[in-house]
Structure formats: C-alpha cells, structure tokens
Design a binder for these strands. Structure first.
Lengths: 201, 201
DNA sequence: ACCCAAAATGACAACCCTGTCATAGTAGAT
DNA sequence: ATCTACTATGACAGGGTTGTCATTTTGGGT
C-alpha cells in the first residue's frame, strides 16, 4: 500500500522508516500514534512521509503486512511439529512459540496487543479481516472429540475463545511485570484446570 | 474533589454536568475524552467548568465516586443472599447482578470497561487504588476448598483471575452485539468447564 | 556544464485539545 | 439604590495533531 516513491527508496531508508513506525505503533494505540514522531525518529521530513504513504492508515497497514511476513515464517515452522499432538500439547507448544516470538520481537508483539484493545473504527474493521492466530486450535479440539479424548458436549469454539482470552490477559501481565516463568506456570495450571476442572471428586 | 462552587450549584445543574460527563467518559477513554464535549453537552461555559473542577482528572474522580455510591448499594444488597452458597452459585449470582446493573446503567458499566483498557498513567494508578469487585469470590473458593468441595491444589487467586478475565471478555462482546442470552449461556458453559474440565473420562 | 524530472523540505492551514484570565453579569445585603 | 461578593463567560495562549503544497535540492542523462 505504500506509494512507489517509498518502494524506490534504498533499503536502509525503508528500514529506518519501518522501524520508527514500529517504535511508535508499539508504544501508542493507532489513534494515539503520531506521524510526527515517526517522522522525527526516522529523520525524514513531514512532507516526504506523505510522499511515501497516503496517510497514517497506509503506514499502519504496511507495518502489519511486514510483521505478518515474519510471523508467517515462524508459524509455518511451528505448524510442522504439532501434527499428531493432542489439543493440550498443541496449545502449550503454540504458547511457547508465541512467547519465543514475543521475546525476540517484543515490539511486534506489543503492536498486536495494542490492536487488541483498540476500539477505533479502523482497527475494528481491520481486525475482522485479519487471520485468527488460534483458529487451528479449534480443529485440534474437534479431532480430540472424535478420538474420544475430549467430551463430545464441549463447544470447541468456546474453548478456543477461553484459551485465547486467558492467554492474552496473561501475556499482557507478563509484559508489564516481565515475569516469564510465572506466566508459563500459570498457563500450565490453566491447562490443568481446563482438563480436569476444579471440583473435588 | 470538585470545588465548592460546584457543590453550591443547584442539583439540576450538578446532574446536567454529571450526566454529560458520564456520556463522554462512557464513549471515550479518559485520555481521549474531551472537556469541550462535556461543556457543550451540559450547556455551561468552558470557564465555568474550571471553576467547578480543577481539571479533567478531578471530574473523572467525581464521576467514579458518584457511580461507586450507586454500585455499593447494589453490591451490598447482592452480598446478603450469597452467604452460604458455594463458589459456582455465588459467581453466577454475581454475574447476574452485574448484568442487571449493566442493563439498568449501561453507561456506568461502559466507564468501568473502558477503564479496564486504559493504560494511561493516571488510570493505571487509579485502578490500583480501587476496590476489586471480584475479591469476595476468592474467599468463597477458599471456603469451598476447606469444605472439600474444591480440590485443595487449586490456586484460588488464579481461578478468580480466570473468571474475572473471561467475564470481562464476554461482557464486552455482549455489549457490542447485544446478545445477552448468548452471554448467559456461555457463562454457564464456562462454569461447567471450570467445574468438570473438558477431558472425557 | 547543462537540463529536467523526481525527490525532499518545512511552512502552512485547519482542526483538535487543555487550562487561564480579564471582563461582564447577577443576586443578596446594607 | 448602591455596594459587594460570588458566578458566568468566551477569548486567549500554548500545545498538540493531520494532510497539503510551493519551493528548493538532488542526481542521472545528454
């Protein structure tokens, strides 16, 4: 979506702008993020920016697309291993992969998280169009139901929703406090509860 | 926290301002909410506003305090019934009470929800100082553990966290789509999963 | 060395916002 | 009727934002 003028730039400059944008969008929600900041931190002029991108939305979409490329590589790699695992192991594997990614590329991860809590029109619409990261989990639960590993009256969609929500919530906490081992411990415990329930028997 | 000049106003005018503030704070996060809007919708002048309140934070705290009063009444009422109920019933009761409140005072509820997703310094600090609505649930789980109704290896804090997070998540969805019966169905299902787990046995 | 098209620039308009302040208005007491 | 103390007002300063545009700079081809 950037204009040709941007694509014609030498790669170093493209990266400088991209990274300035990542910096900004990982600190502020889309609506609060400022082009001025991106312009300042990438050392280009305001006028140039609007020669490269149509507007702020254009820049955001570009950043997302770039991040998506890197994420896709990682997810494809993760996808190879968990073929015959059950849902629980598959989930834990995905969590660890995601955590690894969030550790190597924390800013990318933060952008995703901020997006999650952005209720602006633009972001709401955008979110709908984006691929759901945990969607594969739904298939895994359904497989487990067919194999008799999971109760047949369980709503797979709801379970994915639960997992997705709790994971996001814990991740945010993890980011704030930087207690990664605590996070993994809690995920394990949540999985256990999800498996067995909390009732004494 | 408002100035005396505000308290001296006749009640109708106080309400007008309060309601304009509620309108604004239930539509926009604190940082995005605009005094201009409040001023316009309450029909007072900008200058007057700053004669009534020190600043935006002052107004916000006032609104929260007013809402807190109403909420306290409701919660005290709800607290009377669930004395000897177990955690699950207690939780469902609380959910229904909260939902009832969100139905009668949706704007108040929205303010709370927006606060939940506000990471500004002011709101973060404020949130810490506020009483935790679900804190009583923790005690109920611990009681259930002692009574042998819940496994003793369960972390009560984590369970409350799970419940709190999922509830909030579902409520937001409920607010957006206005599917209240769907919401209650899901809560019931989540409780069931929390109780029994999803594993086939 | 010259030319010209493409790229870079920052001033600018137009619109937000918050908090202040000198002025104008009002209503009660003397 | 006058004085006074409180209240209301909107213009203003000073800050932010986005997107535009006339102007200058640059660099490749001749």
């Amino acid at each position: 979506m950037p204009k040709d003028t941007f694509l014609n730039l030498d790669e170093a400059k493209q990266r400088r702008i991209f990274e300035a944008a990542v910096d900004e969008f990982s600190q502020k929600r889309f609506s609060e993020a400022s082009i001025n900041q991106v312009v300042k931190n990438s050392g280009i002029s305001r006028g140039s920016f609007y020669q490269y991108f149509k507007n702020k939305e254009d820049l955001y979409l570009y950043v997302l697309k770039q991040i998506g490329k890197e994420k896709l590589d990682l997810m494809n790699y993760a996808g190879e291993i968990k073929q015959d695992a059950d849902f629980f192991d598959g989930f834990i594997y995905m969590i660890r992969a995601a955590l690894e990614w969030s550790r190597t590329k924390p800013k990318y991860y933060r952008i995703g998280m901020l997006m999650e809590f952005d209720d602006s029109h633009f972001i709401s619409e955008l979110r709908k169009a984006l691929p759901e990261g945990f969607s594969m989990l739904k298939g895994m639960i359904e497989k487990d139901i067919q194999l008799g590993r999971v109760r047949s009256d369980i709503d797979s969609g709801l379970v994915v929703d639960i997992i997705y929500t709790l994971n996001l919530h814990l991740l945010i906490h993890c980011f704030k406090t930087d207690e990664e081992s605590e996070f993994l411990k809690k995920i394990d415990e949540i999985i256990k509860i999800l498996k067995e329930g909390i009732v004494n028997r």
